[in-house]
Amino acid sequence: MALADGEGAPAAGRFFAFTRFRYESVVALAGLAVVWQIASLFVPHFLFPSVPEIATRLVEIFTSWNSLLDMLATSGRILAGLGGAFVFGTLLAIPMARSPSLARYAYPLLNFNQGIPALSWVVIAIIWFRGIEFRIFFIMVMTTLPAFTFQVLDAYRAMSKDLFEMTLSFRPTRFDLLRTLIWPTVLPGMLTAWKVNLGNASRVVVVAELVGATGGVGYELLQQQQVFDMAGAIAWTLVLVIFVLVVQGVITLIETRALRYRAIAEHAL
């Protein structure tokens, strides 16, 4: 091996970076729990329920079949919405990247869409559509599509002209060009878009469920608000946070595997 950028002990470096990250995360979250628990000793119970009480509610959610169904419904809606936005966003981004004139028309529309609040899409979806699931899917797609389009578009445009010409010199078919050059080029941008959009999607889905669904985390949050159950509200919020963290972890694993070719600078360890 010669002249590697940051080569040497990448596996060990990654391991220590990972464990340090986990250690710091645990400390930060434990600190938050301690502060909350102390606050619960001095503030009325209905405002700051104790940490054990929240933990109990969380366990109840994970051990109740109906609660699990709500959790799965919300997870499914997030993933379906993101999947739809990813597919439509990519299908829009590729022709935009290849046709500057199309991009000139599509950009203002995407920017216009960016300015529309998620709640407005909720109202529009309720007026336009009857089915609850399609309403939520529509809201998710409309709110997260521009980010996917912009990310894929940027990644495509950042594609190396040198690599493009080199690949063309072998006379690939369109599919082969997509498979061997375009896909690996835009993949990092796509994974970033998934990570960024996941947080947005989890917020939007709760708003959508809060207003128009009869199940899911948003619906359950509404129930907790109506009975003024703070422990339940926090427990359901934690369910969503856990889901986001798990999916983020899965994306990170995919990223680690798919982008393993990248050099790691020692300073980043």
Partner: peptide, 16 residues
């Protein structure tokens, strides 16, 4: 296809 080979000024290797 397959008839022309090119060696460029820079290596132009696909990093992935």
């Amino acid at each position: 296809r397959g008839k022309i080979g090119i060696v460029f000024q820079n290596d132009r290797l696909m990093p992935w």
